[in-house]
Nucleic acid binder design. Structure first.
Length: 907
RNA sequence: GGGGGUAUAGCUCAGUUGGUUAGAGCGCCUGAUUGACAUUCAGGAGGUCGAUGGUUCAAGUCCAUCUACUCCCA
């Protein structure tokens, strides 16, 4: 076996293993019905996206789940893919077109534009996925899916057609969120509300029937005045109710408009008078409908004012706003302008304020809402952390129909044809199908495409072959529902909820309502893990413009993929936002190096023996030589295995990382390995001790593998645990029961009480070290101590471990005495320790130290006495708590008495 | 306006059915280093667990109110 280099160098190791894994087909998902299935579908990154910190964490989590599943022998599949990202991609391509060729998409025409966009996607779209390989992502790359793939597209269109046939899809003229830059409608979920500094314009409109009487009206959008068709007041409002039915003069273009009474007007808001602009405001549109008002659109799709805007015609909307203010002033209709902050909806992609705009759109009325709720409330789908359930239910309770048409070219073109020259709103004039009509000359296809989310909501279905309700594939039968979904809580509505609805409605034959069993069969995943959003050190979102996002590939190069993965995991609190700090990730790299060196130490400590199985290692353990530390560390190993199994099941990833870290570094390296150095020097004990180390390392590597795949695979082979062409990914760590069985078979009896004994010894060593440090003896390896043991048992324990203690605490001699005489010492649970020193004691310093300690212990004594003298406590507390309290008080009292005694000797 | 979340050491965070003297990493201070590892080792300082009240033998943990910050939805 090759000698292990001094420090861990991830670069070579990572590349070498990743290539071998790929070559051996390690990540291939195979339909194997004899095994339990476990699938994870990657949240498909946008083809326009670049790898960022969020992806690193999100994909690390998925990789952990899938690798653990593989270890457990499940038939695992992690399916990768990308999302065509309608608006984002189209904007990018149009921008390039404009910059490079000075052309718009209309210059190219639909077909040519799509071709250009496809080329752009092919060039840029795969970058993220290849970057994920550097992270170690074990996706089945041969199954990569893109939402515009032929088969996937078919599924998307079929879903639309099916929902149409089932009556869930309708076309209507509705208020939509219009993005004047992308020139398309948006769903509510794509609109970001932002507090925006603006102005509130106070104006007055003269009452036609009562010249000289004015109504004062406030608005933030005076540019829409030409679109005013009424003013509204609350019919209950005594100030204005007598005016209902009369008219006011709209200032420009000057016209009479009615005063209507409508309960939607808040009496207490502003002046209590509302200008009604049905074409440009949702509430106004509703009021307009109730009062049969005309809808007067004064704006073009690109955000400029149209001919109906009178004096404002042709102006861009924000220019029109100031022009309108000026005009009002000239007309004497402006009362005042005051600064005003309100919340304005912005287009997520273009980052400009959206316009409420009336247009013909396609809508989906969500089916299976009731079942979607039940799936989560009754635990058929489990959310981690659970609290997101509330958010999810809240959304479903207030759900609005989904505007799914987008006025774009890049995407799935809506499979609807209209009879030329006919009324499109009449069903008989429509042809809704995957196939064009047989007489195409008489029809024209809808120009719009579907919202990108109307394709990705089928992700768990269409990636493994769903093409039509009721039809299925082997993959679907095997892997659906998938095991888990890992994603950010920011897309709980956009994606997670919709996937659930899509699965419930479309997987399987048409059903009006579903039973629990049917829900179980139709849900897209059984668990959802919401990972936190990674922010910078100051809590700001990572963004390009702030330049606060580290380059993921640089981080991988700097810390190693394993180090980065472990570091991210250990700082990612469950479902909470994560403040990213590079220093904290270095902990992961350091841990890898520590593991590396522990393996190196093992290799240097003695020859390697047969490490090929648990049994072969356990056979080398000599039950007669099993000492306190062996028992404790092996017992801990079983505990760690159990804890890991539980934590991974429950998606407690942080606890998983911390548990591994504490055991390996704290228990194994700092204590066990250090202590074992004594035995390793003794030829009679060495091989037994090495066997224990081999067993610990083996099991630890198995447990660590999901989060740190590279280093564990490397050491697995370097330490002889696996044969060539076998991989650690196929080795089951189990929950420790296999270790227990092996011990049983080999008559290795672990004494659980040794765990407590070792804890006492560790406290003892820590106290001695501290005492030495205070006496400036820390460097010396030859300190002499005298111990007054607490009792016979303590003395035995100390005597048995004399050599180890000597090494760990740096002692040349440990002698026992009956009493300390009048000399000061340190009190610990096993007894009082007196450090023999040549120099004189710093009496003053010693007094301060002891007084401080006394103060602390006195508190414990007082608290303990109070507790135990409380009769209700004694009668009500359970026996073990009572026992513990008594024991604790006895110990504290003894310690206090000892300290008091020592303080006296100093006087 | 509605609904979440968070508040524990200087910083970032653990602390899962209430039960010993509340933990970790980083940072800071002191010291160590000739054979696993300075990406290391040992020690130390540092906390009335946001505030108030309640339930309980027992509260960081449960309940109520409040304060601050934060996210989502209107």
């Amino acid at each position: 076996m090759a000698e292990i280099p001094k420090s861990y160098d991830p670069q070579g190791v990572e590349q070498r293993w990743y290539e071998q894994w790929l070559a051996a087909g390690c990540f291939k998902g195979k339909v194997d019905t004899s095994r339990e299935s476990f699938a994870v579908m990657i949240p498909p990154p946008n083809v326009t996206g670049v790898l960022h910190m969020g992806h690193l964490l999100n994909n690390t989590l998925q990789d952990i789940m899938i690798r653990r599943a593989r270890q457990e022998g499940k038939s695992a599949l992690w399916l990768p893919g990308t999302d065509h990202a309608g608006i984002a991609t189209q904007s990018r391509v149009e921008k390039e077109l404009r910059q490079k060729e000075g052309k718009t998409r209309h210059d190219l025409g639909r077909e040519k534009f799509i071709k250009v966009a496809s080329e752009w996607r092919d060039k840029h779209g795969g970058i993220i996925l290849s970057q994920l390989q550097k992270l170690g992502a074990s996706c089945d790359w041969d199954r990569k899916v893109h939402t515009l793939d032929e088969g996937y597209s078919q599924a998307v269109l079929q879903a639309f057609v099916t929902l149409y046939e089932r009556g869930y899809v309708y076309r209507g003229k509705r208020m939509v969120n219009w993005c004047p830059v992308s020139q398309t409608g948006l769903s509510d979920e794509e609109v970001i509300m932002k507090p925006t500094q603006g102005s509130l314009f106070k104006m007055r409109y003269e009452v036609v029937e009562q010249p000289g009487t004015f109504l004062e009206i406030s608005t933030t959008r005076p540019e829409t005045i030409p679109g005013d068709v009424a003013v509204a007041v609350n019919p209950e409002d005594s100030r204005y109710q007598h005016l209902i039915g009369k008219h006011v003069w709209r200032p420009f273009p000057r016209a009479q408009i009615p005063i209507v009474g409508d309960a939607a007007v808040e009496k207490d808001f502003g002046t209590g008078v509302l200008k009604v602009t049905p074409a440009h405001d949702r509430t106004d549109f509703e009021i307009g409908k109730r009062h049969n008002l005309t809808v007067l659109d004064v704006m073009n799709p690109d955000g400029t004012m149209n001919a109906d805007a009178g004096p404002l015609a042709g102006l861009e909307r924000f220019k029109a706003r100031s022009a309108a203010a000026k005009l009002l002033e000239e007309l004497g209709a402006l009362v005042k302008i005051e600064p005003y902050e309100n919340t304005v909806g912005y287009s997520e992609r273009a980052d400009v304020p959206i316009e409420p705009r009336l247009s013909e759109q396609w809508f989906i009325h969500y089916p299976k809402i009731e079942e979607a709720k039940r799936a989560v409330t009754s635990g058929m789908i489990k959310f981690h952390p659970e609290r997101w359930t509330k958010t999810y239910l809240h959304w479903l309770d207030n759900i609005q129909d989904w505007c799914v048409s987008r006025q774009l070219w890049w995407g799935h073109r809506i499979p609807v044809w209209y009879r030329k020259g006919s009324d499109r709103n009449e069903a008989k004039n429509r042809h809704v199908s995957l196939q064009p009509p047989s007489d195409p000359a008489n029809w024209e296809q809808d120009n719009d495409v579907l919202d990108t989310w109307a394709s990705s909501w089928l992700w768990c279905l269409a990636t493994i072959g769903w093409r039509k309700p009721g039809e299925t594939t082997d993959e679907l039968k095997h892997w659906y529902p998938t095991g888990a979904l890992a994603t950010g809580p920011d897309i709980i509505f956009l994606w997670v909820a919709r996937m659930i609805i899509a699965g419930l409605e479309l997987h399987g034959p048409e059903k009006k309502t579903l039973t629990d069993d049917e829900i179980r069969a139709r849900i897209p995943f059984k668990r959802v893990y919401f990972n936190g959003i990674i922010r910078d050190k100051l809590g700001r979102k990572m963004s390009k413009s702030l330049g606060n996002s580290p380059e993921p590939l640089d981080l991988i190069a700097k810390f190693g993929a394993d180090g980065l993965r472990f570091g991210l995991l250990s700082i990612a609190p469950k479902g909470q936002d994560i403040l990213f700090d590079e220093d904290r990730v270095s902990q992961g790299r350091n841990f890898c190096n520590k593991i590396w060196n522990a393996a190196r130490f093992r290799q240097m400590s003695g020859p390697m023996f047969d490490n090929s199985s648990i049994t072969s290692i356990v056979q080398r353990i000599n039950p007669a030589q099993l000492d306190d530390d062996d028992s404790a560390i092996l017992h801990g190993l079983i505990g760690l295995s159990q804890a890991t199994a539980h934590q991974l099941d429950e998606h407690e990833f942080t606890a998983y990382a911390q548990g591994l870290y504490a055991y390996f570094w704290g228990d194994f390296c700092d204590w066990y390995v250090e202590a074992s150095k004594v035995r390793l020097a003794d030829p009679a004990l060495r091989d037994h001790c090495l066997a224990v180390q081999d067993l610990v390392l083996r099991q630890f590597l198995l447990l660590l593998h999901p989060v740190a795949p590279f280093i564990t695979e490397e050491l697995w082979h370097l330490l002889g645990y696996g044969k060539e062409n076998e991989f650690i990914q196929n080795q089951n760590p189990s929950d420790g029961s296999d270790l227990n069985n092996a011990f049983l078979t080999a008559s290795v009896k672990l004494d659980v009480s040794k765990v407590a004994d070792v804890a006492l010894l560790r406290e003892f060593v820590a106290e001695v070290r501290a005492t030495k440090s205070q006496a400036n003896q820390a460097t010396k390896r030859d300190s002499i101590i005298t111990v007054i043991p607490k009792d016979a048992k303590a003395k035995t324990l100390l005597t048995h471990n004399r050599d180890k203690l000597g090494r760990l605490a740096g002692l040349s001699e440990m002698q026992f005495a009956e009493s300390s005489g009048d000399r000061p010492g340190t009190v610990c649970q096993l007894g009082t320790v007196i450090l023999e020193q040549s120099g004189t004691i710093d009496v003053a310093a010693e007094k301060i130290r002891l007084s401080k300690e006394l103060e602390k212990i006195e508190k414990a004594v007082v608290a303990g006495e109070a507790k135990l003298s409380n009769e209700t406590f004694v009668s009500k507390a359970p026996a073990n708590i009572l026992d513990g309290a008594r024991k604790q008080l006895a110990e504290a009292t003894a310690k206090r008495d000892e300290i008091v005694r020592m303080l006296k000797t100093l006087n």
